[in-house]
Amino acid sequence: MSTVAATENYSDNVMPIGKMGIWWFLASEIMVFGGLIGSYILYRLASAGAWAEMAHHVSTTIGAINTVVLLTSSLTMVLAHAAVEDENRQRAKLYLGLTVLGGILFLIFKAVEYTTEISHGFTPLAGTFWSFYFTMTGLHGLHVIGGIIANLALFVMAARGTLWPNTQKRVEYCGLYWHFVDVVWIFLFPLLYLSY
């Protein structure tokens, strides 16, 4: 057995524990959405015609707009992180607020979309495509809501100035999560809106 002197402190060599926790969390989240998306693809491959017909009735326009909205809010999240690192309170507040607004805007569009679809009779029970559509976008929507709540809390902290000096790292962690929510949507958009 070698007897290397104990000079290294491992806790200093790796990323902060909070960040690592978020990454492990996201890894397990990927498997949840992965399972759902995998099941969707298998069903999609197994039944061609009927699904293509059903998939025609989703609004690609709103889906595309929402993609832009979510991508933009990811950008403002990055800017918020940069502002927090600079301890620029005004900018941090602004960009966190914009990120929250982006999330809310996404939900509003989603709600409009749901309402139109359901009013045309495309409920979750209208067929397997619609079941998957509502389950996948619904689960994603819950994640968006979670992100909005987290970012709103950060916004309030930034406005009060309590974000510094101990908790500003949380902006980065919430940012990682928010990007993940965005990436999930990037997968859902072509699968649900462009698959006919």
């Binding site: 498997m31 399972g35 099941s39």
Partner: peptide, 17 residues
């Protein structure tokens, strides 16, 4: 556990629905 349970969570959501 972390890498295997995700798909079953998705499956459980589907079963619950």
């Amino acid at each position: 556990f972390m890498l295997s349970v995700g798909p079953l969570i998705a499956g459980a959501v589907l079963l619950l629905l």
